[in-house]
Design a protein around this nucleic acid. Structure first.
Length: 525
DNA sequence: TTGAATT
């Protein structure tokens, strides 16, 4: 009961702050559904706002007009000084004109009117840093929205610059909300953990909740405590997994995400990755490599993942197909897709076994460990080997549609792959496109827990060009939900895969492979 | 048990 009263009080405070909210001149994030938005005066200053009152205003120490405007003139500022943004300044006022107005609150460290980079035109705003933090607080409280300078229609803006605190270290992303939950519901959920400055439910154009929100606390510590207490703590009614509470993306992460989208959209191809020994390693490609490495690093939680494939031993334990590891080439797109050039499928690559599946000839593969295997491997079958009877047996069982195994090309006739490719294989970095055409998309259930997107793709590559493979993950536990999707570029491949793989036994389970349900299948009409 | 909402 006591706690409720306390949080009630806090809430009332927030709502009072809401009344003091004023339009802001500085650019701010696009979300417009702010409900419990904090006051125009940013939080940085709030704790101090009652600390000044009748204290005599300090005067400039030197008493002259020559207060240093620029840092090189020698003024020192406190470590905790605040850079202020000053908005709604008439364009005819320069630094010297503005100085007297602000000097009354303390010694100025730096005052700069913003000018257009190219035209030099006065932008009607400025940055101001006092030597003392307290001066900034006084100035904000005395001036922000309190008076209107001559010729302006809106009151002056005095508040910490965006650069001071964009609040990213205390802003949380909240996912897996129920779509019925409002800002108020989210607010109540988070208010026990600190002072909330902002609470926004993300909504679509129709106003419907997207099931996620932003919550900004006044401090990083509060935000952290909310994460500790709430992340994964409960599952909202109707949500498919437990509550997600994490720090919102930083600008950098957002940039990376945009890059990822670009990569997916345009299918950026990097020959240097696919063909490590090719002559493509120009400076431009090296740059692209770096870019992609950055993407990979980011998308894998900050560390580079070497090419990962299914551990052989693991597969053996399951008594299923033998999918060997890719060569340990760093920075290789693990989820890369490819469209195999015909030369690979027919003659270029030495192979041990080629299954013919319903008339569709699977792509031969390299023996393990060959440096160039990657370019082939993403195009071909998992490199199982005839030397492994278990694998072969299981395969026979697996590929029920397989009519024939054909041994071709002894492993000794390796040809340098660079010479056999008329053009480099296309390797798409990220799986952006999810669905293929109608009849090309498979729903696969009863996947082994350990299967990821890549393993799923490997399993279905023999039946055609896989344009996408996706294993559904539980977001809270990061565990596979044991079902996924595979999309081919044509319906025949999809049908071949169903024929061959539906009912395929892996361990104790049998795969269920069927066409993905169309989107409107569950609707009544 | 059918590609989630995505900073």
């Amino acid at each position: 009961m006591a706690r409720f009263t306390q949080t009630e009080t806090r809430r009332q405070q927030q709502q009072q702050q809401l009344h003091h909210h004023h339009p802001q001149q500085q650019p701010h994030p696009a979300h417009t559904s702010l409900v419990f938005t904090g006051p125009g005066a940013p939080p940085l200053l709030l704790p101090h706002q009652h600390q000044y009152s009748q204290v005599p205003l300090p005067k400039p120490m030197n008493g002259s007009e020559s207060i240093s405007i620029h840092p090189e003139s020698g003024t020192m500022k406190d470590q905790d000084a605040i850079k202020l943004f000053i908005g709604q300044i008439p364009r005819n006022l320069e630094e010297k004109d503005l100085k007297p107005l602000f000097e009354q609150f303390g010694k100025i460290h730096e005052l700069t009117v913003l000018k257009d980079r190219y035209t030099g035109m006065h932008k009607g705003c400025a940055f101001l840093t006092y030597c003392a933090r307290e001066s900034a607080i006084k100035a904000q409280n005395a001036l922000h929205e309190q008076k209107t300078l001559p010729g302006m229609t809106r009151p002056i803006q005095v508040k910490p610059a965006d650069s001071e605190s964009r609040g990213e270290d205390r802003k949380l992303f909240v996912g897996m909300l129920n779509k019925q939950q409002t800002e108020e519901d989210v607010y109540r959920l988070f208010e026990p953990y600190g002072v909330i400055e902002e609470c926004t439910v993300l909504r679509g154009p129709d106003g419907n909740s997207k099931g996620c929100a932003f919550v900004k606390f006044s401090t990083h510590a509060e935000a952290q405590s909310a994460i500790s207490a709430l992340h994964g703590s409960q599952t909202m009614p109707g949500a498919s997994s437990s509550l997600v509470v994490k720090f919102a993306d930083t600008d950098k992460e957002r940039t990376i995400r945009r890059m990822q989208q670009m990569v997916g959209q345009f299918g950026i191809f990097n020959p240097a990755i696919a063909l490590p020994f090719s002559t493509y390693s120009t400076y431009a490609h090296a740059q692209l490599m770096q870019q992609q490495a950055a993407i990979m690093a980011a998308s894998h939680g900050g560390y580079l993942t070497p090419s990962v494939a299914f551990p052989t031993t693991h597969i053996h334990q399951m008594g299923a197909i033998n999918i060997n590891g890719l060569p340990p080439t760093p920075m290789t797109p693990v989820s890369g897709l490819s469209s195999p050039p015909a030369s690979i499928t027919t003659s270029a690559v030495p192979s041990i076994v080629t299954p013919i599946v319903n008339g569709f000839t699977g792509i031969p593969h390299q023996p393990n460990g060959h440096p160039a295997v990657e370019a082939v491997y993403t195009n071909g079958l998992p490199p199982y080997s005839t030397q492994s009877p278990t694998a072969a047996d299981t395969l026979q069982q697996a590929f029920t549609g397989v009519q024939q195994y054909t041994a071709i090309y002894p492993a000794t006739t390796l040809t340098p792959i660079g010479q056999t490719l008329p053009q480099p294989p296309q390797v798409i970095q990220q799986q952006q496109q999810r669905e293929g055409p109608e009849g090309c998309n498979l729903f696969i259930y009863h996947l082994p827990q350990e299967f990821g997107d890549n393993e799923l793709m490997q399993m279905f590559l023999p039946f055609g060009t896989v344009i996408s493979s996706k294993v559904f993950m539980d977001r809270a536990t990061n565990q596979s939900k044991c079902f996924g999707f595979v999309s081919f570029d044509n319906p025949a491949s999809a049908q071949a895969a169903i024929q061959a793989m539906n009912g395929f036994q892996i361990g104790m389970k049998r795969l269920k492979v069927q066409l993905k349900r169309p989107k409107d299948a569950s609707r009544p009409y």
